[in-house]
Every structure is written in structure tokens, then in C-alpha cells.
Nucleic acid binder design. Structure first.
Lengths: 211, 211
DNA sequence: GTCTATAAAGAGATAGAC
DNA sequence: GTCTATCTCTTTATAGAC
């Protein structure tokens, strides 16, 4: 009786495979977020991941495959803060909580923010479908929620989509333009975000308070 | 008597020189603003400028020299909108006018905005001095103006530096994230900025109105 | 799974003719 | 001032030994 030997392509990943793929994705995020797709090299990523270039290419067949993988992995969690905006919640409190979550993402994972910024600035060639598809759909859904709040007199009348743009822009600014923020404030990134929190609460909650 | 023959290095630029340098700088802005420094190639810029690579390198000795030239040329006008904020003006009106000027820059020259975004995202290696020098000085100066308005009770109390960040972030967003904005709104860039104008007036003026 | 060696293409920059 | 040809270095990707 022969031993059970599944097709290698279907076999679950080994521990070492998982670890190396993770190391590569982390290294790729580091490099791609700083230099964009075309400005990054496999060599830099391999170096950052602590392995040789051919070894890296054993796990991912090409530079673009690495890029897509890190972009997908990051995209996955990117929309969560907005998804969690609760139609049943208190409007101003929901806005405040959303601001918090976005600001925390700029604090905890500024590289993800910069990765997207780079991708979108160059025209988002690899994620246009997500933008016109999943993103637009989610924005439409939440815009309707916000419009409902406005119609109920629980929020001052504003354009909900431009409101979301403003929240994205102001919170992601602390990740994407980190060095500029630090230069102007002579403060580290964490302190800058601490300061931003109070300011953004004031800005948005004052403007959105009904009546 | 010999004819007057000035040192060629000191001679004024010919018409063809000026025209070609201008064509190169415009092409360089187009390419660098989309792909960043490392992601851009001299070949692409030459093609965009309608000349051969060696011919382009006749006018600029290296890729970095072109990049510095286009960055300097753009930096030059970048801070003008803030410089024009008038301490003697009516505070809310000065804020509104500043918003207008910044939005118009996103409309008229989105490439300049993206050029800086790319540069700052990668850590601003070539303009750190401008950031900690000229930019910080100008921000300090205008922050003092804003604080004066607040102290006089003519503006609601907010952190002036974070206020400037918020104005930069929200207005430049329409240039830097143009494709995302268009995807979400299903509108062209001009229409998006038209809509942004009303929203941003509401957001900032409501939040900043004293009392 | 990881390495050295290398093929092949891309990209920065120069030489030299016109 | 502009071109073709080319040198050189970088970078992507593969071959094949271990």
C-alpha cells in the first residue's frame, strides 16, 4: 500500500514558506511604499527581506507579482474603518470614531497609506477596478447613510462624498506627508498625530453639528 | 579692431535654447509627477519632449539635474498662495481666499502637486532643507498671524499648524488622488473641484467662525 | 529551498559624425 | 544643436549545482 502523497501544488504551505512569504511581503511594503512600483528593485526587497534575489523569485515569479500581493494584502484591510461606520449609531459619534480609526491607521501603518498614495498618484493602473467597484460601492452606501442623518436633522447639510474625501485627506496626510509634518512641527510622527486628533475633532464636529 | 565676442558661457540663451529647455521641463514634469524620480526614465522624458535622449542630455547633463530643475521651478510658485495670506485682512475671508487659491492650483497644475507628493512620500531627500527652512519659517509666520486672529476673538481657537495641514491635505487631494476622486464621483476633475469648493468653504468656515 | 553564475533587456551617459 | 552608435552599469529573470 503506497503512502498518501498529495499533489505538491495542492499541499498546504510549510512553516518556512509562510515565514518567507511574510518576510518578503513586509520587505516589499517597506520598499514599494517609499519608491513606488517602478522605482523599486527586487534587489532592494530581497536585501530588506534578508535573502538572495533568486531565492525571493522562488516565492514570487516576478516583481509585479510581489507588488500585486502586497497591494492586495493591504487593500484588504484598507476599507475596514469605513465599513465599520454604523448607520444605527449617533452621527457625530460615528464621524469621530471614524476619524480615530483612520488616524490610528496613519499611526500604525503609514507604509500602507504611502503604498496606496503612490499607486493612486501614478493613475492607479492596478486598482482602477477596486476604485470604481468596491470603493465606489462602499462610498455610495455610506453616503446614503450620511444623507439619511442629514435628512433627519442629526447632521449639518454637507456633501457626503466630499466629506469622506476630506476625512481621508486630512488623516492620511500624517502618513503620506510625514516628513513634511515633522519638519514643520519639529516633532515626531506620534506627537503630530496626537495633536491632529484634537484638531480634527474640532474641525469636523464643529462643522457637522446640526442647527 | 576685433569684433565683440563674449564668452559663450556668459552669452544669453538663444531662442532655441529657451524653447527646448522649456519643452524638456514640461515633459519632465509630466513624467516625474506620475512616476517619481526613480521610476522615470530619460528616454520617456525625451520622447515626451519630442527629442532624442542625447539631445536632451545636451541641455541637462543628467537625470538628476533635470529633476532638480523641474522641482526648483515648481517649488518657486508653490508657497505663493500661503504668502499672500494677509494679516490685515478679514480672517474668515483670508481663509476662504486661501482655500480658493489652493484649489485653483489643484485645478490648473495638478502635476506640480503630484510632483511634490511623490518627493515628500519618498522622504523628500532633495527638499528637506526647504521643508525645515523656508516652509517652516513661512508656516511659523502665518501661524502667528492666525494665533493673533484667535487671540482677538476673530477666529475660533484651533491649532494653526494643523489647520494649514488640513487645508493642504483637502485641496491637494483633488490633484494627487484625482483618479480616485473621479472613480468615486463618476465625474471629471474639474467638476469634482467645483463641488469641493462649496464643501470646503462650509467645512472650514463653519468650524472657524468665532463665538 | 537556497545558492552562484549568467543571460537578456533596460537605462544613464558619452563619443564623434554631421 | 542634433543625430547614430556605443559603452557601462543596473535590473529582471532564469539555469543549474548543491
Amino acid at each position: 500500500m503506497t503512502e498518501f502523497a498529495p499533489d505538491p501544488a495542492l499541499r498546504a504551505k510549510t512553516r518556512i514558506q509562510r515565514e518567507n512569504e511574510e518576510k518578503i511581503l513586509d520587505a516589499a511594503l517597506e520598499v514599494f511604499s517609499a519608491e513606488g512600483f517602478r522605482g523599486s528593485t527586487i534587489d532592494r526587497i530581497a536585501q530588506e527581506a534578508g535573502m538572495s534575489k533568486p531565492n525571493l523569485l522562488y516565492y514570487f515569479r516576478s516583481k509585479e507579482e510581489i507588488y500585486r500581493a502586497v497591494l492586495d494584502a493591504t487593500l484588504d484591510g484598507w476599507l475596514d474603518p469605513l465599513r465599520r461606520m454604523d448607520p444605527a449609531g449617533e452621527p457625530l459619534e460615528e464621524i469621530r470614531a471614524y476619524l480615530r480609526r483612520k488616524l490610528e491607521m496613519s499611526r500604525e501603518n503609514p507604509r500602507a497609506s504611502r503604498l496606496f498614495a503612490n499607486e493612486v498618484i501614478r493613475g492607479a493602473p492596478l486598482i482602477v477596478e477596486e476604485l470604481t467597484g468596491a470603493l465606489k460601492a462602499l462610498v455610495d452606501e455610506k453616503a446614503a447613510v450620511i444623507e439619511g442623518w442629514i435628512a433627519a436633522g442629526r447632521l449639518a447639510p454637507v456633501d457626503p462624498r466630499h466629506l469622506l474625501f476630506a476625512i481621508w485627506a486630512t488623516t492620511q496626510h500624517y502618513a503620506d506627508f510625514q516628513v513634511q509634518v515633522q519638519a514643520v512641527l519639529s516633532a515626531d510622527a506620534g506627537a503630530a498625530i496626537d495633536g491632529a486628533q484634537g484638531f480634527l475633532d474640532t474641525l469636523f464636529l464643529r462643522a457637522l453639528a446640526p442647527g
